[in-house]
Design a protein around this nucleic acid. Structure first.
Length: 106
DNA sequence: ACTTTGACTTCGG
DNA sequence: TCCGAAGCCAAAG
């Protein structure tokens, strides 16, 4: 399950960001925002774009040095910052709607 | 097995 | 706008 969260995070394209809650919901676990953080923390260094995951409203929820590094990386990907926050209105990534695989595909 | 903490979110004052 | 409390799931002590 934390695995699912990691996969979802991996789907975030370059130049976009998503909130923990979004990732959790998109993975099928609404309300498991903390687990997203735990998943990233647990698998940091696995090639996951953890820097593309931010808090609600584009707020950096990482403490100290890590937060600054994330901010730096995001700026490097073309994401603009609005003071202490990210310009979510322009970079918030929206996950594809999860459809029930039930003989309907299109 | 139980308690505490954590890269969270949302509402209220 | 900033601070605090409750809800939430999983891992560590």
């Amino acid at each position: 399950m934390l695995d699912d969260l990691r996969i979802t995070v991996r789907k975030i394209p370059r130049g976009k960001v998503a909130t923990y809650g979004q990732v959790a919901t998109a993975s099928g676990y609404p309300g498991a925002a903390r687990q997203v953080a735990w998943a990233l923390h647990s698998s940091s260094g696995m090639g996951l774009p953890w820097h593309r995951v931010v808090g609600a409203g584009g707020h950096i929820r990482l403490p100290g040095h890590l937060g600054m590094e994330q901010r730096f990386r995001l700026e490097m990907e073309g994401i603009r910052f609005r003071g202490q926050r990210i310009d979510m209105a322009a970079h918030e990534f929206q996950f594809a709607a999860k459809r029930k695989r039930k003989a309907s595909r299109r």
